[in-house]
Design a protein around this nucleic acid. Structure first.
Lengths: 219, 219
DNA sequence: GTCTATAAGTTGATAGAC
DNA sequence: GTCTATCAACTTATAGAC
């Protein structure tokens, strides 16, 4: 009993039947949660929030839709959990905490990020699709998207500000403006790249932009 | 008979009851179609394709959902009609046909467009939301979005090319790259602006970008 | 050209057994 | 923690009367 039909790719659940002793140190529940989260992330990336159904996620995670809703009480709660997960992964990768780095260093970091992103279209698509959807005021991710950009802009602006203060960057650069433009360029190129990867070399175009930008704002 | 409940904003349909003579020159059907298209455009902009229902559009157009499907045989056909409508309106406004204009002139035109767009958030949102959704490969607007960018890039690249040929622009500019970057900046700023209009001055930021870009690529 | 009626399916969420 | 069963609502689309 308790065997699911055909197994699907993702890491199978830690399901050891009833033989497993009931000690408290075993995080099987968390493993399940993590698995659901990863699948949900893929589905939201592939079809957006509105285009994704709980049934589909549940099927891929090899449990029923009701079982899924035991771990996340609503679809919206699941979305929030996915966004939180991604944000934490991203922050770790970007080391935004250890900013400000001074002007040139932050920008170099983003160039590097653009290159890295070209290898993970799925994750890039998650942000592009969800952020696009989230423009709608009543979308559950609206606040998340708005706050995320505000934070990113502020963070990069602070770095540029430090660069100006240290004399590395020209005194007449507008840190907030440049920060907004850097993210705009990144997102816009991601969009064109996702739509037409063969004709748009995201990393090269972004690198080129940053190179000229640096030439302009460096002291 | 044939009276609808409470009237909703948009131009009322040309519904003159049965007294109307049945001559062939009367475009009442077209007026209805146009009204539906305008409402559908608003709804798609507000909620995306997946988030919009035919019933809602029909209600606002003051007919039934089945009545709506007499004019457009499917939801997808309606979407295509909306996109075509917008494309035609846009082409008219941008005069892409009368390009190439030479480098500086095209870019000035886009700066102007950014300013104009700030007055029509609804239409900007239509593109942003639908293009984001359309990143998904199986989305009905996927091909439209990809082809639209390809066309826009080619068109602007041709203008820049002409600018290079005439000696107005430096010989070392990469027209295709610059074209992609200009649209990326435009779209990225639109996204941030739609999410947070109070903190992002789209037109100013885009104008600033173009200004510096011109300084760099002008001969 | 518009309607009513309905098909046929999906959705997110809940109740309660085990 | 997971299941079955079920709900009420909503979806797009079609058939056929007027």
């Amino acid at each position: 009993m308790d065997v699911r039909p055909d197994d699907l790719s993702d890491a199978p659940p830690t399901r050891a039947g009833r033989a497993r002793p009931r000690g408290r140190g075993y995080a099987s529940g968390d493993a399940r949660r993590t698995r659901i989260l990863n699948i949900a992330l893929q589905e939201f990336a592939e079809n957006g929030y509105r285009g994704t159904s709980l049934a589909r996620i549940a099927e891929r995670a090899e449990l029923t839709q009701a079982g899924l809703l035991h771990h996340f009480r609503s679809k919206q709660e699941l979305l929030v959990a996915v966004l939180d997960l991604r944000d934490r992964m991203d922050m770790a990768h970007l080391d935004l905490a250890e900013l400000p780095l001074g002007g040139a260093a932050v920008l170099a970091k983003f160039t590097e990020l653009a290159g890295h992103n070209q290898a993970i279209p799925g994750l890039v698509q998650l942000f592009t699709v969800l952020t696009g959807e989230a423009v709608t005021t009543d979308h559950p991710a609206h606040g998340w998207a708005r706050d995320r950009y505000a934070l990113l802009r502020a963070s990069v602006a602070a770095s540029l500000e430090a660069g100006v203060a240290s004399g590395e960057l020209r005194a007449d650069v507008d840190p907030t403006a440049v920060a907004a433009q850097v993210f705009a360029m990144m997102d816009g190129l991601q969009l064109q790249w996702l739509l037409d990867p063969e004709h748009v070399d995201m990393a090269a175009l972004f690198g080129d932009y940053v190179e000229h930008l640096l030439r302009r704002i460096r002291a």
